[in-house]
Design a binder for these strands. Sequence first.
DNA 1: CCCTTTTTGAGACTGAGTCTCATTCGGATA
DNA 2: TATCCGAATGAGACTCAGTCTCAAAAAGGG
Lengths: 141, 141
Amino acid sequence: MNDSTIQNFKEILRKEGLRYTKQRQAVWDEIQNSQEHRDAEDIYMSIRNNGVNVSRATVYRTIDVLVKNRMVRKMDVGDGRNRYEPRLGDAHHDHMICVETGKIIEFYNEELEDLQEKIAEENGYMLVRHIHQLFVKPLKK
Amino acid sequence: MNDSTIQNFKEILRKEGLRYTKQRQAVWDEIQNSQEHRDAEDIYMSIRNNGVNVSRATVYRTIDVLVKNRMVRKMDVGDGRNRYEPRLGDAHHDHMICVETGKIIEFYNEELEDLQEKIAEENGYMLVRHIHQLFVKPLKK
DNA sequence: CCCTTTTTGAGACTGAGTCTCATTCGGATA
DNA sequence: TATCCGAATGAGACTCAGTCTCAAAAAGGG
């Protein structure tokens, strides 16, 4: 929402040879302004409720650009709907999903990250990215 | 395909209050007889090619029973189609997917497993299951 | 302001998976 | 082994996230 973020977004569009439109800005604003893990429909509805006319097609198309440029992270929670969250330069993290409440908890563990790279290398590969979700339930008190 | 496996399968059906049918047996046979990571359509087509009449609905319904009873593992490779593999009592493993060739490599790392339980516990949760996929590309020679 | 090119949006389409319900089958019982 | 009834099956309708189409609208360089 601040100037530097908008400039950054414009730069990415330029780099991709894409035009700056209010719809694209609205999608980025919407994702950026909420730290939650939201699905596309949710993002689409919010933008419309904010009075910006946009189509689902445009929402999906813009999300793809944002994901490709690492401004947004796409995550598969396993219920058939992808969730999105802004990256905003903050450190990488994985997710823990409570199977009882659906609550999503973020976590980051250095050791875990290193181990994954090591495993890939041991097999003759380089780690590009990973999907890692822990499905958990509350510990009995 | 051998007697004890069939008995085991029948036992699970009984436990679930389900009847033993040739379609259900065919689905289990099909998954069991291939160590590959196959999708539902693939399994469905193979069974039909083997001369057993079965519907997609039955394939999906049977897979659900097998997954619930831990005879089959369901995995999300991220392309919108779930893959299935037999468990056959063999040890747990995760997958590495080559983004260049699509090859799926299985791996198991004790340290990684322990670490995940530890992380869940540190957050007041118990690990129920996890999704863990490493997307990799070949190391440059 | 013009003009070319890109973007948009409404809604058609896709494809994996689920649901429906009339028909068929399993298997317990006698 | 024949009967019977609830469970299982299958064809295809349906769902739903996401993609595609293409005419109309907007961007933005000149």
